[in-house]
Design a protein around this nucleic acid. Structure first.
Lengths: 382, 382
DNA sequence: TGATCTTTTTGAGACGTCTCAAAAATAGTG
DNA sequence: CACTATTTTTGAGACGTCTCAAAAAGATCA
């Protein structure tokens, strides 16, 4: 296809006139417009401003335009100015696809927000997380591509996105033991950074995490201070590092405090309100039911509270209750919870990822944040 | 850069040998590997399989490869087979950036899931929505780019994404009156399709919607059947089409039933649990408090229920309660709600968008779905 | 067999950007 | 001023794909 200048020359008018004519700005009289249009039709030209047009208008070479637009130090300020003005005049917009092809990068990072058909993923924490990650990406002129990860063969989706150059790398969450995605991405040298990983054995990849064991410890110590000893735990089914860590921490702290754990103080449930409520029933029907119940997250605490309300147990007088994640529901219901610094973590995570993408890993590839206990009335019986 | 064949020729080995040598497969002896590597270094070649390599290996022209890979009818089956085998052998992956540049499309659709710093967006419905849209996109070989939309000048973000060819079009939700995004996108002829729009005046764009007035009508009629007449409404502050429609519907139905509305049966609140609870307090302190409370969504119903629980009003015996959106919390709490067919709607929405993108709008550009009443114990006093 | 029509393959070129090596312009020096 | 060193600009070419018009191969028929 022709360039704008060629069209202008062919119509015998200045470039700017041709531009105005084709972009239908009314500074051009009808006759001129038609002749320009005819020239354009003749050359099979449709208006689309590229760096070449800027170069023609500013009277410089196209290479100069590229350098100028990218603020290269090479270019003399006066020249840059000239180029920018021409770009402005013509309403130029960079074509990302062309840049991507040339630079062999995309400025896009993949994140599988959803796991297909897994209702237990309903999770305010991850909502906040993805929001913060999106912000972190955009601050660095990246974008987030969200996709659905199938239950089976999750790694294939990742592979296809990276091998077709659709994305430059990935953010990964919900890392599990011997995660096939990690094995695959590592094998193909695809850049990624994870949220979670500190409780995996020899995790050799970039990640940020929040110390979940510490979070539980804070909760437990607070409950001890409140005079509780018979403490129950509502956790997830085992198999997920963060859940297992929380339960392990519970056991360690109890052991350390010299309290014998009754196994029927512990119940496991998926992330579903109903199940959480019935698991609570199970715990409360123990021979010596606990006086405090630690939940692995706020959703469970909410389910537990519903059950406790139903059987008219008062919180905190009859039983203390804690959640985890500090989500709005917990705040509203006055449930003691553990805050995870998602906002700060997201920026760090993205920096880690950029290090991986640029083949220049940060010195600290694994960053661990501290959780913070939010004490609310659900544990304050005095 | 050179092609694989040139490297192979220069090293004096068959293409496949060169390929194996460079991809470090152990079928090649060390000496050969070195000489191929030397040839590659010499030509400044790094292994990256393109259609040209496939063409060389299969002994056809590169154009043929492109046609074959895209299942063009032009190509003879035997040839296609040959090409596919070569592609397989070399582990070929399409380069999306190159295709995008050539075809001037991206296969990516933008969706601003988040509105910056707006906590009231916390909304399970939109979670479900975006999940379904992502699935719908992927079924059609598209991807979703999620971005953060600033509170002010939202339209500029949309413009930048489309004018740099980052996306082919947009999915839009939370459409409001004289939405600047819609004005801008329409003006620049950017393809988009919206969720919501039926209660805008002369909405001249593609959208799907769920009839919100009908949803409220179903709720009200059910409450009438249960014998209620003094019915309150917990709604959003006015200014949003869907919220205004729900309130308008409430008023219409009451009017039609010949019931005079007391203005202190109505309160407005943002999407925040605390505010919903206090708005409920306000309503319940009316001179003749309502016997049933209709909430604009489930989050509000949840806030309302908390307050009602606190003052020991029984649901449904003392007061009936309804929500809207049928989210898991409402299901768990047994709150009567209105289900919106998000799952079906997402596919339709995406089809509409594809019509816009391909400049071939569907015959029905505006599709309206019916909501469905889910009756639960919060309104069944018998 | 040769002519004509149809199917299949070819190869060049374009998409818009960035970057390299080389050329031109400018500054610095005696 | 002539020469060198430095800064700035140039212009070609590559990134990998798709598509067009043209060429080649194959089929049909007299």
């Amino acid at each position: 296809m022709a360039t704008l200048k060629e069209v202008a020359d062919s119509a015998g008018v200045p470039m700017l006139t041709a531009f105005h004519a084709l972009s239908r700005q009314d500074v051009v009289d009808e006759m001129t417009r038609r002749s320009v249009q005819a020239a354009a039709d003749n050359l099979n030209y449709t208006l689309k401003i590229t760096q070449i047009d800027i170069a023609d208008l500013a009277g410089v070479a196209k290479g100069t335009v590229s350098y100028a637009l990218n603020n290269s130090e090479l270019i003399k300020p006066a020249t840059r100015q000239k180029v920018l003005e021409a770009a402005q005049t013509l309403g130029y917009h960079l074509n990302i696809s062309a840049r991507n092809l040339r630079m062999n990068r995309t400025g896009v990072v993949g994140y599988s927000w959803h796991v297909a058909d897994d209702p237990s993923r309903m999770n305010n924490l991850l909502d906040r997380f993805i929001y913060q990650v999106t912000m972190a990406a955009e601050e660095r002129h990246f974008h987030l591509l969200t996709f659905v990860q199938p239950q089976a063969n999750a790694d294939l989706v990742y592979e296809s996105l990276i091998s077709t150059s659709r994305v430059d790398g990935f953010i990964i969450s919900d890392v599990t033991y011997r995660d096939p995605r990690i094995a695959r991405l590592t094998a193909m040298k695809a850049p990624f950074a994870a949220f979670g990983g500190m409780y995996l054995e020899d995790a050799d990849f970039a990640f940020v995490d929040v110390d979940g064991k510490k979070g539980i410890r804070l909760v437990m110590e607070h409950l001890f201070e409140q005079g509780h000893e018979r403490i129950g735990l509502l956790g997830w089914p085992s198999g997920w590092p963060f859940g297992d860590a929380r339960e392990a921490s519970y056991r360690e702290v109890m052991h350390h405090a010299g309290i014998k754990i009754e196994e029927d103080w512990i119940a496991h449930t998926p992330n579903i309100l109903d199940s959480a409520a019935s698991a609570t029933r199970q715990i409360m029907s123990a021979k010596y039911p606990p006086t405090a119940l630690v939940c692995a997250n706020d959703l469970m605490a909410f389910g537990a509270k519903s059950y406790l309300d139903n059987i008219n147990l008062r919180i905190p007088e009859d039983i203390a209750l804690t959640g985890y994640d500090d989500d709005p529901t917990a705040q509203f219901l006055g449930i003691t919870s553990v805050h995870q610094p998602i906002d700060e973590l997201a920026g760090t995570l993205f920096e880690l990822l950029l290090g991986e993408i640029n083949q220049d890993p940060l010195p600290h590839r694994q960053v661990i944040f501290d959780p913070e206990l939010k004490i609310r009335k659900s544990t304050l019986s005095r």
